[in-house]
């Protein structure tokens, strides 16, 4: 019973972590058809902003999330205008942007390494204690992250369905040419989507690093895992992505506890590969029809 609860709680923790990643990344796939490996840079950014805010300039915890939001926004804007825009202009965007975002990820990691050093820092924006249930501790941080996932999901859903920005993003993702004919500035709405993404990603960075520590490559694994979760769920299907995030989180933690922690990620990947062998478009994915 103990071990079951352990697995449940830690699965919940990593599941929420993957879910926030999947949430942010699916926005970019939906808008531009972009798989962003540089997500790790945004996570590290959020972590370092929280560290800077509370440990370096001793500001209140109150400022952490707004500051992370802002810095992610700015980063997203810069990233779009310096890199994505130009690569979008060339052919084969969806593959090229993966290469470019690997480069951005390495650049970001290197920058943080040079600015803040390589050692792991304690990120102060976190809850230290936890709730005790039959001898097993459920950290408040996990509960907090889980609640934040739900809040972020609701906010995203509201933005996408109600606001003009969401309407435009959906229009552009469904048919960029038709969107242009409606008078929509596609580049501007890409930039806006990128800024929205950046701010969400930086906030998730605060949450993720609160559960561990902050160091330059902190988001690397989480990024790759969130991406393969999106792929196995079928890209463009956010609800399936969130479900898969928790399912695979439980799988990974279960394997970790039962067989040793080095087998968690491999077994998760193995599961994904097996699913993709039978369903190349993902578990819940639709067949893509290319019209001639």
């Amino acid at each position: 019973m103990d071990i079951f609860l352990q697995i449940l709680f830690s699965g919940l923790a990593v599941g929420s972590m993957y879910a926030v990643g999947a949430l942010a990344l699916s926005l970019l796939w939906g808008t531009m058809g972009m798989l962003n490996l540089a997500h790790t840079t945004f996570i590290a950014l959020g972590g370092y902003v929280a560290y800077f805010c509370m440990s370096v300039i001793d500001a209140s915890w109150f400022f952490v999330l707004p500051l992370a939001f802002l810095s992610g926004l700015v980063m997203g804007y810069i990233y779009y205008h310096l890199v994505i825009r130009h690569i979008y202009a060339n052919q084969n965007f969806s593959v090229n942007i993966i290469i470019a975002s690997v480069a951005i990820a390495a650049l970001g990691e290197n920058t943080f390494l040079n600015l803040a050093g390589g050692e792991a820092l304690r990120q102060p924006f976190q809850f230290t204690s936890g709730l005790k249930i039959i001898g097993v501790v459920l950290p408040y941080q996990t509960i907090f992250t889980f609640i934040m996932v739900i809040i972020l999901m609701v906010i995203m859903a509201l933005i996408m369905s109600k606001s003009k920005l969401g309407q435009v993003i959906r229009a552009v993702s469904q048919n960029p040419d038709a969107a242009k004919l409606m008078g929509i500035n596609v580049q501007k709405s890409f930039a806006q989507a990128m800024m929205l993404y950046g701010s969400i990603a930086a906030i998730t960075g605060v949450l993720v690093t609160g559960a561990s520590q902050v160091f330059p490559s902190v988001g690397g694994d989480a990024t790759v895992k969130a991406l393969i979760i999106l792929i196995v769920a079928g890209l463009g299907n956010l609800r399936a992505g969130i479900f898969m995030a928790f399912a695979l989180g439980f799988l990974e933690m279960g394997v970790n506890y039962l067989f040793g922690s080095r087998y968690g990620f491999p077994s998760m990947l193995g599961f994904v590969i097996i699913v993709l062998l039978f369903k190349p478009n993902g578990f819940f994915g639709k067949e893509v029809v290319n019209r001639v």
Binding site: Q174, N175, A178, A179, R291
Partner: peptide, 9 residues
């Protein structure tokens, strides 16, 4: 535009 330039979803 011709028929296909609508927002299908």
């Amino acid at each position: 535009p011709q028929g296909d330039l609508i927002f299908p979803d």
